Computed example of a mutant assay.
Amino acid sequence: MHSSDNPPFLAKLPEHESTYRRLRDMVLFGDMAPGQKVTIQGITRALEAGMTPVREAIRRLTAEGALELHENRRVSVPRLTPSQLEEIAFARLALEPRLARGAVARMQPADIDRLAQIDREIDAAIADVDVHRYLAGNFRFHFALYELADAPILLSLTQSLWLRFGPSLRVVIESEASIGPDRHRDAVAAMRQNDARALSEAIEADIAQGMERVRAELGA
């Protein structure tokens, strides 16, 4: 278990918020494997943070369903069941294409250029078979797009779904020793054409592709 490098902006946040975001990213990008129990002290050391902000971060992530609290001061990322995966798939396919369509009307050329640059960084991570960089870049791409929709409730719901799904995706990628392609290039092309429908379809296909990989791993 390790903590990812901290972006400079985290240093400007209150300690409890920066600690939450760093622990969230450890869960989101699979640094804590599903079912692996770790001690609160171990998390504190990995984050180089105080016990109080770590406990608060664990409390928040437990409330979001991203962590489970066990006896003996241990926590773990829950293992996904096939039925939970289907619920997540249903919700993501309802929310994320809607956010993508909403982003189109507010999108500026600079936003598209930024998303295209993130996609190039993802392609480099795929070529290097760098799973952590890929997962972090994939999250940045989707949420940089979704934030443009200016729909904070839908955005928050979507983030909670990613927290439940992300760790299992990393397990699948590492077990297959292959990251595989995505549909981001199609998404960027749709953005440049100002085509909300095509963008929605690209996002749907991207979600379905990731879900199918995890579904096969779970035997769902």
Score class of each variant (00 low, 15 high):
209 Q>W: 13
173 I>C: 01
211 M>I: 15
151 A>T: 04
178 S>G: 11
169 L>C: 00
213 R>C: 10
156 S>C: 11
143 F>R: 05
198 A>H: 01
193 Q>R: 15
192 R>C: 01
214 V>D: 08
173 I>F: 06
171 V>G: 04
146 Y>K: 00
214 V>S: 09
172 V>P: 04
156 S>M: 14
183 R>N: 13
158 T>F: 07
142 H>T: 05
158 T>N: 12
186 D>I: 07
190 A>P: 01
165 F>N: 02
144 A>G: 14
209 Q>N: 13
163 L>R: 10
213 R>S: 13
199 L>V: 06
173 I>Y: 05
165 F>A: 02
158 T>M: 04
212 E>R: 13
207 I>T: 06
209 Q>R: 15
170 R>V: 00
136 A>E: 14
198 A>V: 02
151 A>Y: 08
170 R>F: 00
151 A>D: 11
161 L>I: 08
154 L>T: 10
214 V>N: 10
145 L>K: 02
181 P>D: 01
139 F>V: 15
156 S>V: 13
134 Y>V: 03
137 G>N: 01
165 F>I: 04
165 F>L: 10
153 I>R: 14
159 Q>L: 14
173 I>D: 04
158 T>C: 12
190 A>Y: 01
189 A>L: 07
166 G>P: 01
188 V>E: 00
140 R>G: 03
168 S>P: 01
152 P>Q: 04
212 E>F: 10
148 L>S: 07
162 W>V: 04
192 R>D: 09
157 L>I: 09
142 H>E: 11
183 R>I: 03
211 M>R: 04
207 I>L: 07
169 L>S: 04
170 R>T: 05
182 D>H: 12
138 N>M: 10
169 L>I: 02
201 E>A: 14
155 L>T: 11
137 G>M: 07
186 D>E: 15
198 A>Y: 02
135 L>P: 01
195 D>E: 12
205 A>P: 03
204 E>Y: 13
184 H>C: 05
157 L>Q: 14
178 S>W: 12
208 A>V: 07
215 R>E: 06
203 I>Y: 02
206 D>I: 03
191 M>A: 09
191 M>E: 07
208 A>K: 06
208 A>I: 06
213 R>F: 12
158 T>S: 15
189 A>Q: 11
135 L>F: 02
169 L>R: 02
211 M>C: 10
171 V>L: 01
210 G>M: 08
154 L>I: 03
148 L>P: 08
159 Q>G: 11
196 A>S: 11
143 F>E: 00
184 H>K: 08
178 S>C: 12
163 L>Y: 03
189 A>T: 10
139 F>T: 15
191 M>Y: 01
210 G>V: 04
193 Q>E: 14
153 I>H: 13
192 R>M: 07
146 Y>H: 03
192 R>V: 05
185 R>A: 14
158 T>P: 04
175 S>T: 14
136 A>R: 15
144 A>S: 15
155 L>V: 07
160 S>P: 02
159 Q>P: 04
208 A>C: 03
203 I>Q: 08
137 G>Y: 06
151 A>I: 00
189 A>K: 09
163 L>I: 06
199 L>S: 03
166 G>A: 00
174 E>S: 05
151 A>L: 12
158 T>G: 10
211 M>A: 09
176 E>V: 11
191 M>N: 07
156 S>D: 15
204 E>V: 12
200 S>G: 11
175 S>P: 09
215 R>K: 11
